[in-house]
């Protein structure tokens, strides 16, 4: 799952060397547009909807991984439990 998240972040931002503890704002220096861009990429890739109110609870990569797993996304399954 980390690899998938890393791939999406790299595709959207061009940034590499992501770990579980990487903070989107403090370490990757992303701004709000970058973050929403990543949200769109996650939603499109996994066919889920991520309410904006949930986005601001996700600070580090591990929060994103946990959030996706709670949505029913796993490394072997890329379809979430919600329909768009």
């Amino acid at each position: 799952m980390l690899k998938i998240v890393e791939e999406i972040i790299y595709t959207v931002t061009g940034k590499r060397n992501i770990t579980d503890d990487t903070d989107f704002i403090k370490d990757l220096e992303l701004n709000s547009f970058d973050i929403m861009n990543i949200v769109c990429a996650f939603e499109e890739r996994f066919q889920i909807t991520i309410p904006t109110r949930d986005v601001w609870k996700i600070h580090q990569v591990k929060d994103a991984v946990r959030y996706l797993q709670e949505k029913g996304i796993s490394s072997s399954s890329e379809n979430g439990s919600e329909d768009r």
Partner: peptide
Amino acid sequence: IQEERKQETCRIARRF
């Protein structure tokens, strides 16, 4: 401040 760069602008606009 926003840097103009190549992005999936159509997708983002539809979403937000």
